[in-house]
């Protein structure tokens, strides 16, 4: 077994509902959904975010979509216009989630190496550069 970051196994999107941030985590490969379901427990997610959350973590399963939806309560410093946070609407809690580390077999680690990250040496093409 080895440890890899969730960013190689899943993509994610987050948003807000009041003082709660939601993070939807979607397996790149449906075959890895079960692995995510086993390891991304509400308890482990709560431990990952630690003092960033004033409330608890709820989890919902969407097996058809290969996705898990997390509600992170008390994540947004009051939420909406109350919040003093740069990320007051929880738009990038998704990427904070993708920092989590999971235990996977060497085989899976090799399969997903580099996934979710810009390929080495990549740069915007000349016509795309600012």
């Amino acid at each position: 077994m080895t440890r890899i970051q969730l960013v190689h196994l899943a993509h994610a999107r987050s948003g807000d509902k009041g003082d709660t941030a939601n993070v939807g985590v979607i397996a790149y490969d449906a075959a890895h959904y079960e692995l995510l379901r086993e390891q991304l427990t509400p308890a482990r997610v709560a431990e990952h975010f630690g003092p960033m959350l004033q409330g608890g973590v709820e989890r919902f399963e969407l097996p058809n979509l290969g996705a898990l939806n997390f509600l992170l309560h008390g994540a947004l410093d009051g939420g909406g216009t109350m919040s003093l946070m740069n990320d007051a609407q929880g738009k990038v809690f998704s990427t904070a989630m993708l920092r989590m580390e999971l235990d996977v077999s060497e085989e899976v680690a090799e399969l997903v190496r580099g996934r979710g990250r810009v390929p080495e040496g990549w740069a915007p093409e000349a016509d795309q550069a600012p």
């Binding site: 999107r13 987050s14 509902k17 939601n22 939807g24 979607i26 919902f60 969407l62 979509l65 939806n69």
Partner: peptide, 15 residues
């Protein structure tokens, strides 16, 4: 994948 990302956006209890 692009559609799934939007489906889970601002989601509460999906049921």
């Amino acid at each position: 994948a692009s559609v799934t990302e939007q489906i889970v956006y601002e989601m509460g209890d999906p049921r």
